[in-house]
Design a protein around this nucleic acid. Structure first.
Lengths: 229, 229
DNA sequence: ACAAATTTAGACACTCTTGTCCATTTCGTC
DNA sequence: GACGAAATGGACAAGAGTGTCTAAATTTGT
């Protein structure tokens, strides 16, 4: 291993390509077939790689599985935080902006490939790998919920919303935005753009009926003053 | 089969007991291990029955699985409809009554053994048995959602709520009532009574902020007069 | 073009699971 | 107590999947 000197971190190039295609194929197959139902030959075929290569890269089936869950968790979290950073802190049109945010969250984090796969794996194997998914729970909901809640708290503080408990409101916001996608999610389907938009629109409207200020920002300039009830 | 005359429908007694204990054990194991991960010996052991008995009763693994899904679907549906029939059509205290209803729905239909198992099986195997779960979709959400929506429509018509689209409102009601149980559901856990009550309380409060009449029933005496449903 | 590393295909041993068969025992009923 | 139906346990063949090993082919960096 004398070449460790200059390239240091970078293993061969094609090597990395194989690694990625193994991970891709494996998440696909594990999701479709469940851990027990998946087999290595299937993954190898789908990855366009020989079985031995998978063993070279990951050791065994279980290690491969763990690697995939970690990978998905990481990627999904990154996506969620990226999307949270687009939260409308200074909304021009509160309803439209929140709907757009809800749609982004759904499309980029929940309905996309990674989101769908991670959800499925958690549901399917969550009970069998408590420690692994405890990790997910901490990194995922444990960090993303509070981040969203903080954004809503800020929005309320700025006078755009009338919220008692931002944590509750944040969870309800997401629940409402996804209310009409539940059955599709259950069966492992992917809702199309229209469905996502519909659900988000209905959800945000209800959310604003519950938490919106009575008079929109346009008429009263200083709504922040007396607002609390 | 000469004894078919008087008992007619009733097969032997102990026979039926075995059947039940096989179904119980099998749902347990299929849920815990997924279809592919479950094995017949495990089920036999858990049922306190020999493997051969399972084959005598159900033919093969897949038939057993199908029988279980149908059984769970049926039982869950019955529970949901029974609970829907307790919907508060003439609420004394709208908030309290809706909270109690939401709690009943959760405890009796969603968080109980059957509900948990059916949900898990749908999530886990839904993609692999499209026809089987299409059946569930028709019998389940296809019939229960409209039934709940009809109840909300009636409540709105009677002047207790201000609802545009009862179908949307019904889905949002359930989404809100379960908003705080999502993570627990994901990981296959069973929320305790307090969690269910908390989530229902928060959810119903938000629901009523969105859809409740501005002035509570107390002040205006005759909202019931114009009601017809 | 060379040398090292990686990939490949195939064979292999091993284990686990399904579903069947059968002789024996137990159970429920009369 | 006797009869028939059902349950039992254990053996069994067949198949599938995991993980290892090997020699040959291919790719990669220099």
């Amino acid at each position: 291993m004398k070449l460790g000197v200059s390239p240091d971190i970078i293993p061969p190039r094609g090597h990395e390509a194989k690694r990625v295609s193994i991970m891709d194929a494996a998440s696909e197959v594990f999701c479709r077939e469940s851990f027990a139902g998946a087999n290595i030959d299937m993954i190898a075929a789908e990855a366009g790689v020989s079985r031995q290569t998978i063993y070279n890269h990951h050791g065994d089936k279980e290690k491969l599985f763990v690697a995939i869950v970690r990978d998905l968790t990481e990627r999904c979290n990154a996506g969620i935080f990226a999307t949270i950073s687009t939260f409308p802190d200074q909304p021009k049109d509160l309803e439209a902006d929140l709907i757009a945010f809800a749609v982004r969250l759904n499309q980029n984090c929940i309905c996309n490939r990674d989101g769908k796969f991670l959800r499925k794996l958690i549901q399917t194997e969550g009970e069998r790998y408590p420690e692994l998914f405890a990790e997910w729970r901490e990194q995922g909901p444990g960090r993303t919920w509070p981040a969203i809640a903080a954004r809503f708290a800020r929005l309320a503080h700025a006078g755009f919303l009338d919220i008692d408990d931002p944590d509750v409101a944040a969870r309800q916001f997401l629940a409402l935005a996804n209310a009409e996608l539940q059955t599709t999610f259950m069966l492992g389907g992917t809702p199309d753009e229209d469905e996502v938009l519909q659900s988000a629109t209905h959800g945000v409207r209800t959310f604003l009926r519950a938490f919106g200020k009575r008079q929109p920002a346009a008429s009263a300039g200083k709504q922040g003053a007396l607002a609390n009830a």
